[in-house]
Design a protein around this nucleic acid. Structure first.
Lengths: 173, 173
DNA sequence: TTAGTTAGTGATTCATCAATCAATTTTATT
DNA sequence: AATAAAATTGATTGATGAATCACTAACTAA
């Protein structure tokens, strides 16, 4: 409500949001820059004023989606008690998954893309999340922190699949 | 060695094998039927004598890849002792992942494809694997079989990612 | 008001690709 | 050898899409 819809300060971020939605729903390779442009209410060529290539737009979208997870985890870790740490992290991730399915769906797509720049972005994202969680588990004095971290990530990945495929039975409850 | 390379009985299966490799490495949507044909040493139009659409070829490839997992698990369950059941299933999946990375990579791609027919195939595959494992755990008298099944699948999914991204640290060991 | 800068688009280009179809080569049959 | 059937391909088509470029409209400052 602050910003009007016709006058927009942040075209770049609007384009990224549009791309997340379109790439997730249609698939990165199948989605066209024209579809992204339509979603963002701009012309197709204008995308290339902000992003040199379609792939650069994907990288920007992935950065946004990893930042959301990382920021959320940082906030949880800052305030959660040692006893509720894991529970709160799980809840936080669950909320992201419900509120921003498209970002997670896009990450899942990117897991399988063999372009070097994409793989690097995904390794960075996963690696950072892992080390944040591991450090928090260690600081909280949780025993077997490495294995607990691994299981936390594993459940998260299965949760992604369960959500995306609409198979709640995969997660038990 | 039995079959020569010029005279081949099973064109259909050769095409599927080629498709698994090409789709996995290049990405289903980006890969072209000409690339699949080249890999299979046939002409591009000939693919359409066996598969009505590119998507039909993907479905056939997914069926092969799920059958490999399911058959392997069935064999393990038939012979494994209750104590070694889970360990043996893990080892079996690990072998598949090492020997047939492309098939798993293709499954991972398919997890994110929003076409109805693909989603249905993926739900069927996951659902079948889950119920096979769950039944085996129950028959083996493993306590908390539902949760143990969930964790088994979860570790499997993280293992996929760890392998595909080349991040062994994600799995701990 | 005009000159300069920023925001944005229409039209086009070059490339690519799934799918079709008519033609040809290869294999089996008599 | 002649013929029929099966296997396989060349050539083409109609669509589509990323990226470029030259153009226009809208703002800003002097």
């Amino acid at each position: 409500m602050g910003k009007s819809d016709t006058t927009s300060v942040n075209r770049r971020e609007e384009i990224i949001s549009a791309a997340i939605q379109v790439f997730a729903e249609i698939g990165y390779y199948r989605a066209t820059t024209a579809q992204v442009a339509q979603q963002a209410n701009i012309s197709q060529p204008y995308i290339f004023r902000f992003f040199s290539k379609k792939e650069a737009l994907l990288l920007a979208a992935l950065e946004v989606s990893w930042a959301r997870v990382i920021d959320s985890f940082h906030k949880v870790i800052e305030f959660a008690s040692s006893e509720q740490l894991e529970t709160d992290l799980i809840r936080a991730y669950d909320e992201i998954l419900n509120a921003n399915q498209n970002e997670i769906l896009l990450q899942m797509q990117a897991q399988t893309i063999q372009e070097d720049s994409i793989r690097e972005a995904m390794r960075k994202g996963f690696g950072e999340v892992r080390s944040i969680v591991l450090k928090a588990f260690l600081d909280a004095g949780i025993p077997n922190a490495e294995e607990r971290t691994m299981l936390f990530l594993a459940r998260g990945m299965l949760c992604n699949i369960s959500t995306v495929l609409g198979m709640p039975e995969l997660m038990g409850k």
